[in-house]
Simulated scan of single mutants.
Amino acid sequence: MTLTLTSSDFKEGDRLPDAQVHDKGNRSPHLAWSGAPEGTKSFAITCYDPDAPTGSGFWHWTVANIPADVTEIAAGGPLPKGAVEGRTDFGEPGYGGAAPPPGHGPHRYIFTVFTVDVEELPVTREDSGAKYGFNLHFHTLEKASITAIYER
């Protein structure tokens, strides 16, 4: 079975709903996944904008240590016990919605679920998306993504 990621808030390639935009709703989307491979001990989620004019993209959400028996996150949370949200590029932990510069064109918001081979990654609420990504690089079994678009 192949890992798949879906959302009841948007489909692949859709415009990101206002509820997931930073200055309109700033609420994390519903996400559901299935098809985790054998050996999955936890899950992680990220939301990344590769089109941000930073030279390195923009981390909008990092979540790790989601228990292996969880296969869905409700819109706006709450997250399951044990899960940890990292610091976004806004400077705070938690979900930070879409906020592209006006007139910069469409940005892609890539939501990814990772199957992880350990129960807990060594990350905290103060850690950046880069640190989450570094740890995920060494512990990901499989990943699946869904991308939404947003522009001002």
Rank of each mutant, 00 (worst) to 15 (best):
M1R: 10
L3E: 00
L3N: 03
T4H: 00
T6V: 14
D9W: 00
D9G: 04
F10M: 08
E12Q: 14
G13A: 12
G13F: 09
P17Q: 05
Q20D: 12
Q20S: 12
H22M: 15
H22W: 15
K24G: 00
G25I: 08
G25D: 03
G25Y: 07
N26M: 08
N26W: 04
P29C: 06
A32G: 11
W33P: 01
S34T: 11
S34Q: 14
P37S: 01
G39H: 03
G39D: 13
K41E: 05
F43K: 11
T46L: 01
C47E: 09
Y48R: 05
Y48E: 01
Y48W: 14
Y48A: 02
D49V: 08
P50K: 11
D51H: 07
A52E: 05
A52Y: 05
A52V: 02
T54Q: 02
G55L: 04
G55R: 11
G57Q: 11
G57I: 06
F58R: 10
F58I: 01
H60V: 03
H60L: 04
T62V: 09
V63H: 00
A64F: 06
N65F: 08
N65G: 09
I66Y: 02
I66E: 04
I66R: 03
I66G: 02
P67S: 08
D69Y: 13
D69S: 13
V70W: 01
T71Y: 15
E72D: 08
I73M: 11
A74Y: 06
P78A: 07
A83K: 03
A83G: 01
E85M: 13
E85I: 05
G86T: 10
R87L: 14
R87A: 12
R87G: 13
T88F: 09
D89F: 05
F90P: 06
F90E: 08
G91K: 03
G94C: 08
Y95K: 03
Y95V: 02
G96F: 04
G96N: 03
G96T: 11
A99N: 14
G103P: 02
H107K: 05
Y109W: 12
F111P: 02
T112L: 06
V113M: 05
V116P: 04
D117W: 04
D117Q: 03
D117G: 13
V118T: 11
L121S: 04
P122R: 05
P122Q: 14
V123K: 00
T124C: 00
T124D: 09
T124Q: 12
D127V: 07
G129V: 09
A130E: 14
A130I: 11
K131G: 07
K131W: 15
K131R: 15
G133C: 04
N135R: 15
L136V: 09
L136D: 04
H137S: 15
H137C: 11
H137G: 15
F138S: 15
H139G: 03
T140A: 10
L141Q: 03
L141W: 07
L141R: 09
E142K: 15
I146Q: 00
